[in-house]
């Protein structure tokens, strides 16, 4: 265990160093949700039944969660890049804990996500979003968000080690853009036709988004929703636990075995 902590910390340090050396990509990924907040908030906001400011408050938690779900793409890209550059092979010949490399990557990713939330939330405050409940609940909301990011990154790491291709990661990045569209991140699900509503509400993004809106006090838990959305905090924890229980062991195994 102390071995895992030592090696994991070294790998974490490496990820943070990488980001410091090449900040361009980070800046790009951080400006994306801000652009979407302004664009969706003012363009869609004016076309929806909801008043603009109310929609923007509704949108801030949605975009936070949609951005967290990008952990699939980021995790996949970084893992595939390391495989492609031979870094994974070198690490695999070292006598280090088999979980240290993916763990270091995922923890670094969560830390970067946490830092990236700050400018986004400042813009959110500027366009009318507020924490309506207690600071403790707000902290809980952010904790849940980071836990969700942690889980999605492990999905990405597994897929990156599986496909071993940066191009595939890029392609899938486009596909993950769809995921929040099939959830309540940008629009309420109440208006959707029955089967689509069920599908959207069983999307993990919906449970986490609803939990955030509830904990920040931006919007009430919708009536008559599927279980994970009707019980958003329990639902979010359930989703994170399931995703981690499935993908973390798969990723570590894949890392340990390599291509065969």
């Amino acid at each position: 265990m102390s071995m895992l902590a030592h090696d994991g910390t070294a790998m974490l340090g490496r990820q943070l160093q990488r980001i410091r050396n090449t900040p361009g990509l980070l800046i790009l990924t951080q400006t994306m949700p801000i652009t979407m907040l302004l664009f969706f908030g003012y363009v869609f906001g004016s076309a929806l039944a909801m008043p603009g400011e109310e929609y923007r408050s509704f949108l801030v938690p949605g975009l936070l969660v949609a951005t967290a779900a990008n952990g699939i793409m980021t995790g996949m890209f970084q893992a595939a890049q390391d495989v492609h550059r031979g870094v994974t092979d070198r690490l695999r010949t070292l006598p280090i804990n088999r979980a240290a490399v993916p763990l270091g990557q995922s923890v670094a990713d969560v830390m970067v996500t946490a830092a990236g939330m700050v400018p986004f939330l400042l813009v959110g405050l500027a366009v009318g979003w507020r924490v309506e409940k207690s600071p403790l609940q707000a902290v809980g909301a952010l904790g849940l968000l980071l836990l969700f990011r942690f889980a999605t990154t492990w999905i990405g790491i597994f897929l990156g080690l599986l496909t071993r291709s940066e191009e595939a990661a890029g392609q899938l990045g486009g596909a993950t853009f769809i995921l929040p569209l099939l959830s309540n991140a940008y629009i309420p699900t109440e208006g959707l036709p029955g089967w689509l509503r069920t599908l959207a509400e069983w999307n993990p993004i919906s449970a986490v988004t609803t939990a955030l809106r509830d904990l920040f006090g931006n919007a009430p838990v919708p009536e008559g929703a599927a279980w994970p959305v009707a019980h958003p905090i329990a639902g979010s924890l359930m989703w994170c636990a399931v995703l981690l229980a499935v993908f973390a062991p798969l990723a570590v195994r894949r890392y340990a075995h390599g291509e065969g």
């Binding site: 160093q17 990488r18 050396n21 090449t22 390391d82 550059r85 031979g86 870094v87 092979d89 070198r90």
Partner: peptide
């Protein structure tokens, strides 16, 4: 290995 295996970003 036959191909470089250091981290180019570092």
């Amino acid at each position: 290995g036959q191909y470089a295996s250091v981290d180019g970003d570092l």
